[in-house]
């Protein structure tokens, strides 16, 4: 969420053939961020719980899922999912090729990049319940799921990042 642009933004989905390790996801996001023009980024995948959720072992911490950080620009987010899908909003269509090149450099497996409308444009009922009738910054729509905590799952990068 860094770059201001006059051109029409585009949204793309990166869908790798396999789930990404945290280190690979970190490298990929760094490469994409370096190429600039990023308006919004969302990473999605199956949840990685911090403790065993059911059964006789309920509550036992899962050490493998602790302390995984995604660092980007001047922000760091705790990684709570296995990265399986990345949604991007780019400031213009020409950026797609740069994203594709970044994926080719970093991803060890095949992937697909599809351009489509990904983030919703109007507030849903869940958005209304979460943010009220007036959404302060419309870029937040569709960026996090309704149960997400803003301070834990969302980071706003400064305008000085990217486009380096």
């Amino acid at each position: 969420m860094v770059t201001k642009s006059d051109t029409e933004p585009v949204q793309v989905e990166i869908f790798p053939q396999r789930f990404l390790k945290p280190a690979t996801a970190q490298r990929l996001l760094e490469e994409i961020y370096k190429s600039g023009g990023i308006l919004r980024i969302m990473v999605q995948g199956p949840n990685l719980p911090r403790a065993v959720p059911y059964g006789p072992g309920k509550g036992i911490p899962i050490e493998e899922h602790m302390n995984m950080l995604l660092e980007l620009g001047d922000q760091a987010l705790e990684l709570r999912v296995k990265v399986g899908r990345i949604w991007l909003e780019l400031d213009n269509e020409e950026r797609i090729e740069e994203v594709k090149a970044a994926c080719e450099r970093v991803l060890p497996y095949t992937f697909s990049i599809k351009r489509k409308q990904l983030f919703h444009t109007k507030p849903t009922v869940s958005d209304y319940a979460k943010y009220g009738s007036e959404v302060e910054d419309k870029r937040i729509l569709g960026l996090v799921d309704p149960k997400a905590k803003r301070e834990r799952d969302l980071a706003i990068l400064s305008d000085t990042g990217g486009d380096a």
């Binding site: 396999r18 789930f19 390790k21 719980p49 065993v52 059911y54 072992g57 296995k82 060890p108 497996y109």
Partner: peptide, 23 residues
Amino acid sequence: RGCTVHGHSLRLDEDGMMFDMLA
């Protein structure tokens, strides 16, 4: 997997292992 069996219909991990929420 006695519990939290999620993994059958998910993509594999980078190293070819089936995804396991409990590692």
